[in-house]
Design a protein around this nucleic acid. Structure first.
Lengths: 293, 293
DNA sequence: CCATTTCATACCTCTGAGGTATCGATCAGC
DNA sequence: GCTGATCGATACCTCAGAGGTATGAAATGG
């Protein structure tokens, strides 16, 4: 039994006439009759009640017809879809991103990509930058939005946006009165920042910035998520330097201020060059449109 | 492409080794490699990324693997099921029955049959006896529970139960005082009965019973359903002779009484001899157990 | 009763699936 | 860096089986 036999069977079940069914299959009647007989023999049951004048489906035949139609339909669709998946028009794409990208470029990227590739299912994975890098290398992600400048192994990369650090403090904090803050203003403050194990890019930038006048920064708390940092600052537990893109709509009681010579960093789309998912190139095309605009 | 090719593909996708996959398919490696190449050629896409050392699935291959597994599983199940359907162990059986059988033998019949043939889906069709006969002949029903004595064409028949007519009247009706009623008691009453076009068996029995002393019965109302008849009697619109089996739990305000020399009739299971549904014989086996007990 | 229709059977041909031998490339170990 | 081992690809051969033609057998209709 193979798909050809199933097509023969369906043809006969639909026409109930050996000659017509054989013609539909582009063959002559005798070998067609033999194939039907062979099907019934291998399946071990009569599918047609027939004499030299009439052909009718048996109960088993009716049931098998339903199944054959379903199987053939899915089979044909699968064969057609292979090219679509291979060309990247259809399929699945696992996209990782760090939380602070969720509020800037990721929504735009996802929207543009979904328009360009509506049949590719985007699986979004929010992770911290170090996990993202590991997952990219292991192939558990096809692409990711994260900080640029990673010295990682063969990653194809394109710039999505640039971001810079900005100060957030409680509304009644003494630094809230300043128009712009500098490194010396932060010297005596309790700083809140994610540990280097989570996002080395941000942590290094903050440490270097604060340390520039020779003062060792005091990191009071070290949560993993930028959102937690904002909440803790709002609770009056310290101040923080966070990406500007996260300052758009701060909670009540928080204010943000620019800082002098604010460290900048790239937000990039990257994919392991080894990732052979054909849905990825279109993502880079969209990303370049975003980064260039 | 046929199912054999799909099995080859799945074998290679699971082992990622041409030699091992070929062995699993009980063949040697060279023709196996050729078949894989042929699959990729006909599908128009690479399914495996391979060199002389490593074999890996492409994105298209991963997608196709899912589809192949699903298709093969359903295909194999369909082939297996053919014998089961042909032997009557699995499948579908359309069973018609008249409403007054619903409260006597049908529940028992359905329960016993479902125990004997759990994989046969019973499709129950409540119809009036005349429709049942027509549907049986046309093959729209495989079997049915209806009144016996039909002179219809080649119907295989077995007795399920015997029923007799019984009188129902409102609780405060003058006939409610009698222990047992005779034809003469009914002479001046407004009778409610289904028309002959719905159930000739009952209608004839009632007319003959009432007419026996030479009195023409007065049929006040002629609804199609026995349940409607009971409701109308409860509303005081007349009295009725209905099958005893429907008198089990009458509504408040109704009482039933036996009648002298009550007409009896058979309730039978019947199937068109032409019906070739292999699930039917087991139904008759169950029915004979019911009828004999 | 004969012509016609329709499925089944007999016999032939040839495609293509599978086998064996072998090549070419890659990797491990000395 | 050389050598043997491993593994997929290629070349060539064989034969099962799918399809073709001719024809038989049964049923229907005029």
């Amino acid at each position: 039994m193979d798909t050809r036999h199933m097509r023969y069977f369906v043809a006969l079940a639909e026409t109930l006439h050996f000659g017509h069914a054989a013609a539909r299959m582009n063959m002559s009647q005798p070998p067609f009759s033999r194939q039907i007989a062979a099907i019934e023999k291998t399946l071990g049951a009569r599918l047609f009640e027939r004499n030299s004048r009439n052909v009718a489906l048996t109960a088993a035949g009716r049931h098998f017809l339903e199944e054959c139609r379903a199987v053939l339909e899915r089979f044909d669709a699968a064969c057609r879809d292979v090219q679509l998946v291979a060309s990247g028009v259809k399929g699945e794409l696992k996209l990782g991103f760090m939380m602070n990208a969720a509020y800037s470029v990721v929504p735009a990227l996802v929207r543009l990509y979904s328009e360009k590739r509506p049949d590719v299912r985007l699986v979004l994975e929010e992770r911290i930058p170090t996990d993202i890098e590991e997952m990219l290398i292991e192939g558990r992600l096809d692409a990711a939005v994260t900080f640029g400048g990673s010295p990682a192994t063969h990653l194809r990369t394109t710039l999505l946006a640039r971001d810079r650090l900005r100060l957030i403090v409680p509304r009644d904090h003494r630094l809230a009165k300043l128009e712009i803050a500098g490194p010396t203003d932060l010297a005596s403050e309790r700083l809140i920042a994610a540990p280097a194990s989570v996002t080395p890019t941000l942590r290094d930038a903050i440490r270097n910035y604060c340390a520039s006048p020779g003062v060792v920064p005091h990191f009071a708390l070290e949560p993993r998520l930028q959102h937690t940092i904002i909440r803790l600052v709002a609770e009056g537990l310290g101040i923080a330097l966070i990406p500007q893109s996260l300052c758009a709509d701060l909670a009540e009681g928080l204010v943000s201020r620019p800082i002098l010579d604010a460290p900048e960093f790239d937000i990039v789309l990257c994919a392991s060059a080894a990732s052979s998912n054909p849905a990825v190139p279109a993502l880079f095309e969209v990303a370049e449109r975003l980064g260039g605009g």
